[in-house]
Amino acid sequence: MTYSGERILLSSQREGQVSRFRKWVFLVVPLVAILFQVYVPMFFPFLSFLEMPLLVVVYFAIMRRSQISGLMVGALVGLAQDSLSKNPLGMFGIVKTLVGYFAASVGVRLDVEHGLIRLLLGFFFFVFHQFLYWVMSRALLGQQMTFDWPHTAMLAALNAVVGVALFHFLDKLKERA
């Protein structure tokens, strides 16, 4: 499908092409993303701001355009992330489940091949992810955390930029029709 820069919104769901991936991609890519987050900051602490698992969840959700598929990927990645942190199981799981569901919902309506759309989606869902995590920490765990809007916005912009490059790389793993 050739891309037209003038049309961002899809007129119907059928216009959006559902990207297909091999099964091993669904297993390896999230694992690599989690490994990146737990290993690389040991040697490059400044890279700890990158939320690679979140970007991977957003990518698969918007490319698959299936809300069930998106929420399942989000749930599994989130639970794996919870398992490797000191958080109770379910914190990242619930947050990424909702991110996957809403990303898939948005992907149904928007042309997610556009770079600007990907940048905006990456920014929005990072802020949404951090805000939802903050709400759950305060409401469910009673932790006194502060939500720094300017800092979060800056990190969201950085993650969005990295996300655009990552999405472009992951496009290579799509199955050719």
Partner: peptide, 22 residues
């Protein structure tokens, strides 16, 4: 309402998991 049902089920399951682990 399949999608929203699955979403609610998954979230409920994780809330239970969160409550137990917390």
């Amino acid at each position: 309402y399949r999608n929203i049902t699955v979403l609610l089920l998954v979230i409920m399951a994780q809330l239970v998991l969160l409550a137990v682990s917390a």
